[in-house]
Design a protein around this nucleic acid. Sequence first.
DNA 1: GTGTATGCAAACTGTTTGCATGGAC
DNA 2: GTCCATGCAAACAGTTTGCATACAC
Lengths: 144, 144
Amino acid sequence: MVASAQEGSHAFGSGRMTAQRVTIVDAAEQMGGAFTVDDLAVAARRCDATVGVATVYRAVAALEESGWLERVGERSGSALFARCSAGDHHHHHLICTSCGRIEPADCPLTAVVGTVETASGFVVTGHDVTLYGLCPDCVTGGEG
Amino acid sequence: MVASAQEGSHAFGSGRMTAQRVTIVDAAEQMGGAFTVDDLAVAARRCDATVGVATVYRAVAALEESGWLERVGERSGSALFARCSAGDHHHHHLICTSCGRIEPADCPLTAVVGTVETASGFVVTGHDVTLYGLCPDCVTGGEG
DNA sequence: GTGTATGCAAACTGTTTGCATGGAC
DNA sequence: GTCCATGCAAACAGTTTGCATACAC
């Protein structure tokens, strides 16, 4: 699916859909896995060389705000983003350390957080969980 | 307990124990909770105004290397460190969102990671878990 | 026509590095 | 005496911001 400036509702929610934003959204959709803002800027520039870094940063901020994009960690000092299909529902991420692919994962803590808080007297109100590993493709591909 | 340049083994493991490093170690021990490198530099400068930022960064890197200090997350773009008593043993952190206090927590995933990897075909090789909440002191203090 | 999004570049923040020197071992 | 750790400041990378202009609505 490719975004279009003509459609009524889009990834930016209430923002204006400009040609650059279409390019950025398309580039993000074609990324597959996690990417930095710079990765996205490079990809977007392949379609439209005039897209500036600031525009990409602003677009990413707007996309994150609208929930279309998610910050999923960091890589060597840069924030790592990914298009996430899990939407609003509480979840975490499986990040493939080989290909960078991101998959949503149900929260594995829901059942155990209760024990954690009773054990130390800490009342847990939130948590971050990121799982690293190999996606099915990289597992089979990396076994030989 | 206050570090001393005379003791044989110290927080830096094999490194040299200089006056600046003693100051930095003492400052870190008096922090209580999580702190940024800048926080630590400010605290260290209260004892010794000549300590430079670069020295603090280098000391923090060495302390992290030796396992005496741990990177426990980030706050507004800066890395967050904490003195951690759990040592080498696999664990995660409970961060009090009220006072910044850090406590080690046993890994709540050990029992469930198996299910996560079977469910999606992902082979999980590592994970980050950070729990946020209120420490016992802040729970009782914050109830009124 | 209005006001948001843009590009450019400068500014800003956190962090690292080069170099001559002091001092721990 | 040797060589690591230091301070200073410049360099560096990622990110944000100001401003005049283009263009979506």
